[in-house]
């Protein structure tokens, strides 16, 4: 364990982005993710990168748009209300088929809400707050190690599919320190022949999200996007199973909720109750098939969230048997209580 270091989740994201080769980061401050801009402000100049505090969230996401169009690995980060402000830019980036990484350390909402961790922006992340038939690949880590590892992976996924990738954490994950090992760079490189790098000696590249003719341009473009999305659905689903082999009861949770659920499962297993955890690591694409298979063998599926019921809609789509699906959630910056999870699962036994 000697190579492990102790860092906040937010700082780990920053260092991992630098490891992944991100040299362009644009953001506007908001708690509980301010350690990311603070870290990038200090570290990026040391590695020849650019940290720029934008005048607004809107400006920051459009700076990402610009940097990405020029072929750079670019990132922005914010928290819930700030992510709302970025939605227009995210839709444009998706429409322009550009890669980028967006970090959302969710806090309590709606509106300005509060500054404690929350998971009430699942809909916003997975359904898109911006306009149009687009998707954002959403990864939901549950530890500082995973935040770091997934940040590196996010840049590769973004470049491979040329789409925005979101790291969806919460204020607790961002603020907590945990030992972790710095990830290695993946070593992958991506050609970006479409990049706006100056048209000397070649035809100019054009990047746009506007295609005014419906019949031959915009629908066709959308169908191309859907092909990419289908490819992602087929290849990039990530999830973790914990004690599911003999599970009669399945808890479905991601991020911080999954950590708390895992502790509750430890207690329930001591009582001989056969319960396990299904933890989606990608929220889009969602592991529908995999959860369906697990739930077919189970008597009850309990979704635990730091919201009043968002991911549970995907769980219902997966399970396809509403009577099996139960829900427990806390919101507004409150955490699910382990004892309450235990009480619920115990009650399923009669």
């Amino acid at each position: 364990m000697s190579d492990q270091i102790l860092m906040k989740g937010n700082e780990a994201v920053g260092e991992a982005a630098i490891i992944a080769g991100c040299r362009h980061y644009f953001a506007y401050p908001i708690t509980p993710q301010n350690e990311i801009p603070a870290y990038m402000a200090k570290r990026l100049p040391e590695v020849g990168g650019t940290f720029l505090q934008a005048e607004s969230e809107l400006a920051a996401i459009n700076m990402v748009f610009g940097a990405s169009a020029a072929g750079a690995r670019a990132m922005t980060s914010s928290s819930s209300p700030g992510i709302s402000l970025k939605q227009e830019g995210i839709s444009y980036i998706a429409g322009a088929e550009l890669p980028c990484v967006i970090v959302d350390m969710m806090r309590g909402g709606p509106g300005l809400g509060n500054i404690a961790g929350s998971q009430s922006d699942y809909f916003q992340a997975t359904r898109g707050g911006g306009n149009g038939d687009y998707r954002v690949l959403v990864i939901a880590p549950a530890s500082v190690q995973e935040l770091a590892d997934m940040t590196v992976k996010a840049f590769d996924l973004a470049d491979h599919y040329s789409i925005p990738v979101m790291i969806l954490g919460d204020g607790f994950l961002g603020q907590m320190s945990e030992p972790f090992t710095l990830p290695e760079p993946s070593g992958k490189t991506f050609d970006k022949p479409w990049a706006l790098t100056g048209a000397k000696g070649r035809k100019p590249n054009i990047i746009a999200s506007m295609r005014l003719t419906p019949e031959d341009l915009l629908e066709k473009h959308n169908l191309e996007l859907q092909k990419t999305y289908q490819e992602i659905e087929a290849n990039e689903v990530m999830y973790e199973s914990y004690l599911l082999d003999d599970a009669e009861y399945v808890i479905v949770a991601y991020g911080t909720s999954a950590r708390i659920s895992r502790s509750a499962i430890g207690e329930l297993r001591k009582e001989g109750i056969k319960v396990g955890l299904f933890r989606p690591l990608t929220l889009w694409p969602y592991p529908y098939k995999e959860l369906k298979a697990v739930s077919d063998r189970a008597k009850k599926v309990l979704t635990v969230e730091m919201s009043l019921g968002q991911m549970v809609e995907d769980v219902r789509l997966a399970v396809q048997n509403d009577s099996k699906v139960d829900f427990y959630g806390r919101t507004g910056g409150m955490l699910p209580v382990s004892e309450e999870i235990i009480r619920k699962v115990r009650s399923y036994g009669g």
């Binding site: 364990m1 492990q4 102790l6 607790f172 603020q175 907590m176 320190s177 945990e178 030992p179």
Partner: peptide, 13 residues
Amino acid sequence: MKEGKHVSHIPSY
């Protein structure tokens, strides 16, 4: 951490 234990730290904020 030096003893191989699991640790976490979170400030009130």
